[in-house]
């Protein structure tokens, strides 16, 4: 089953700056990790047709684009490594040893450090991206999963599924400085664009916790109610904010919906029907399109962010897990 989550968090800002600087590269590409197929599907950002299917290692899940947009990194849980895909060549150019069962990864804002959740040994591993050298292993709770890095790169938030906690890690001290109890089986953590909050989804708890990132306390909890859907099927996993930060999108797993939340009022505006067991989400560079990976229907749902409508579905590999987008 899909387990981890990945995200270049806090890196969104960096992405945007970069795009502005380079004048938006021509062909945006969408990379989807297919957990079951051991591949990454590459889609053309405009036509959404498959350009290439790249074989990676065993059980690819966490996937992230580097801040400079040149590489896509993928965690192979069963191979115990991270593969590096060159975005121009669309080939795996190197492999980095990542310790046991790497599930998700995140990058420092500069892209020089990789943070990896090692699900089997309750560690977050810090690696130097250039050399693959292990800088530190930080013990966290059981089954570490989603990671998010603050925009200044000083703090990494990791959630551990079986301990039901968000762990705040000081990047320079390389240790946990705070632990926050959230609802059962947290999956994904995401800093808000202003860095003041960290939003955490809890798959089994069925909620999103909003944590004050300075005080390290849960200041609000969001619940979901979908007409006609049993409460036990509501399993929040992937989470993304819109480019302007006004909306939050939450993938509800087996409820087969993406919830749209108004960040100001914290009310759910809409539930968008997507494919079966929707897992991770990703936002296009221009912020106009949201993609959702549907694990059991082997497709991506394409969501128009302005109109909050699902516009189409695109077939990918088996058990699509995560999505990364290159400029």
């Amino acid at each position: 089953m899909p387990l981890c989550s990945i995200r270049p968090l806090g890196v969104i800002g960096a992405f945007v700056c970069l795009l502005a600087a380079t004048g938006a590269a021509s062909a945006s590409r969408i990379f989807v990790s297919n957990e079951r197929d051991n591949t990454v599907t590459v889609l053309d950002g405009a036509s959404l047709s498959t350009i290439k299917t790249i074989p990676v290692g065993q059980r690819p899940r966490g996937i992230v684009t580097t801040p400079d947009g040149s590489e896509v990194l993928v965690c192979n849980g069963d191979s115990g490594d991270i593969v590096v895909i060159d975005v121009d060549k669309l080939e795996v150019t190197r492999t980095i040893d990542a310790g046991p069962d790497p599930e998700t990864l995140a990058l420092s804002p500069k892209g020089d450090i990789i943070y990896v959740s090692n699900e089997d040994d309750s560690m977050v591993t810090m690696l130097e991206r250039a050399s693959g050298k292990v800088l530190a292993k930080v013990p966290v709770g059981i089954e570490p999963e989603g990671l998010s890095v603050s925009a200044d790169g000083k703090t990494i938030v990791d959630v551990s599924e079986s301990t039901s906690m968000a762990h705040f890690i000081d990047a320079s001290a390389r240790r946990v400085v705070a632990n926050v109890l959230v609802d059962t089986r947290p999956r994904v953590a995401e800093y808000t664009h202003d860095g003041k909050e960290v939003w955490v989804t809890s798959e089994v708890g069925g909620t999103v916790a909003i944590i004050d990132s300075d005080k390290h306390v849960v200041k609000h909890k969001i619940n979901f109610e979908v007409a006609g859907i049993r409460k036990e099927l509501i399993s929040p996993v992937g989470l993304r904010f819109s480019l302007d930060g006004k909306l939050a999108f939450v993938a509800l797993g087996r409820a087969n919906r993406v919830a749209v939340i108004d960040v100001a009022s914290l009310k759910v505006l809409k539930y968008l029907l997507v494919g079966d067991r929707v897992w991770q989400l990703a936002l296009s560079q221009d912020g106009k399109t949201l993609y959702a990976a549907n694990g059991l229907t082997n497709d991506l749902s394409v969501i128009d962010v302005d109109n909050l409508k699902v516009t189409r579905s695109v077939p990918v590999g088996r058990l699509p897990w995560g999505i990364a987008i290159s400029p």
């Binding site: 930080v138 013990p139 240790r175 946990v176 400085v177 705070a178 632990n179 390290h216």
Partner: peptide, 22 residues
């Protein structure tokens, strides 16, 4: 096992008393 590991790793997991109500 697991607990010992954490205990051994002590400081990494230790909380800063001034920061956390926990």
């Amino acid at each position: 096992c697991i607990l010992c590991l954490l205990v051994a790793a002590g400081p990494a997991f230790a909380l800063d008393g001034s920061e956390s109500p926990a």
